[in-house]
Design a protein around this nucleic acid. Structure first.
Lengths: 213, 213
DNA sequence: TTAGTATACGGAGGGTGCCTCCGTTTAGCA
DNA sequence: TGCTAAACGGAGGCACCCTCCGTATACTAA
């Protein structure tokens, strides 16, 4: 709850640079920041096209830079994987903010689920690499988890207050329900889609009929 | 249930060789079979010592043979991983047979759990590699699962008949309960041990007290 | 505007790991 | 006891991760 930036509003480039590096250092040079972003985007594209085992050379090429540049920004493979994953998590949080501000409560839930499905797709291609990354940096996992949980809370709580979603369920419940469906490798994409729709239906306030004895 | 060999009794070496190769071919030469076994054993040792990323060279060295010999037996890395895993599953099934024949029903359950914990440890170190292997050969997963399930059935059914284990639970229920505890990477070994003991306690016939309304 | 410098860039090359190839050795058979 | 099909060993090819350092360039101060 404490590492979040305050909003999704427009930030100056210098601010953006500060967020990537530590706060005390001078901002990155413009070309460096541009290349860093190119690299993360390229990595995501190449990973999703070629799988998690894609080579560093291929990623550098896709970004239009040399491997030296890649390694300047990301000293080793896992650092790059980590950056891609963190960017995805961050974007999901941004999405939660945005749909919360721009859409009605229920459509916001639907849109957020959609975004989560996309997020889960890249997480799935990086599953093995992330497994290693989480082992080396346990706080990466916990920070990501916290950010995800608060994203779900944001969207679900709002929908609960508006009466669109049943109130016997929390954001983190929903996350626990949805995460395995999206991440489990033995569930095909279209099956996952069906399951998600089913979960959505069960979430609606008027779906709460079953009462345990 | 159809791929099982009929028993754990003493088989001739020629029979053993036939089981490894296809049934139609001539038996392997004695040195080849010896080296094959050395390699699987060495692979298991090296993997458990160095992790699933251990090199083929290291394994060949541990077995005391050249890499050429390794690759003659296992054309690529995954084939070796698969062989180690299949051997483990097979040994677990042999153990189920053995404890079923040699021990009283309840001690047999305990001994089998112990063996399963050992099995799960190597499965855990090979998790990433197995993930790939399962992707390439879906029948490997299903055959292993079937063999595991029948091992659990064997031990649990016998204990149920003797009255040592509650009869509202099946072997495959127990497997579903135990497997994640042993395999989940975020559960430490000693925690897994505690959880297993707890499951064991819950399995006993005299533990069945809670009745759902 | 310009010169100086800290910073970033690129890619050749070192190191390692998977796998192949082929000359040498040996088990099994007549 | 030879003959031959089968197995052995390890040098070397190839691909990938990462390092190093000479070159290029964005920022800064005069």
């Amino acid at each position: 709850m404490s590492t979040q930036t305050e909003s999704t509003g427009d930030r100056t480039e210098a601010q953006a640079a500060h967020e990537i590096e530590g706060a005390g250092e001078r901002p990155m040079r413009a070309d460096a920041r541009r290349n860093r972003e190119l690299l993360v985007t390229a990595a995501r594209n190449v990973f999703s096209a070629q799988g998690g085992a894609a080579s560093m050379e291929a990623i550098a090429k896709e970004a239009g830079v040399g491997v030296g540049t890649l390694y300047r920004h990301f000293p080793n493979r896992l650092d790059l994987v980590e950056a891609v994953y963190q960017t995805d998590v961050q974007e999901l949080w941004d999405t939660a903010q945005r749909v919360g501000a721009e859409l009605e409560p229920w459509p916001a839930v639907e849109a957020f689920f959609d975004a989560f499905l996309r997020y889960a797709r890249t997480k799935k291609t990086l599953l093995d690499e992330l497994h290693l990354a989480f082992e080396k940096k346990p706080d990466l996992r916990s920070r990501a988890r916290a950010l995800l949980e608060s994203s779900f809370d944001l969207v679900i709580d709002r929908a609960k207050q508006s009466g669109a979603v049943r109130d016997d369920i929390s954001g983190s419940d929903v996350m626990q329900l949805v995460s395995p469906v999206c991440t489990n490798a033995s569930i095909e994409p279209e099956q996952a889609g069906r399951l998600l729709r089913m979960i959505l239906d069960g979430l609606r306030a008027d779906a709460a009929r079953t009462v345990l004895a």
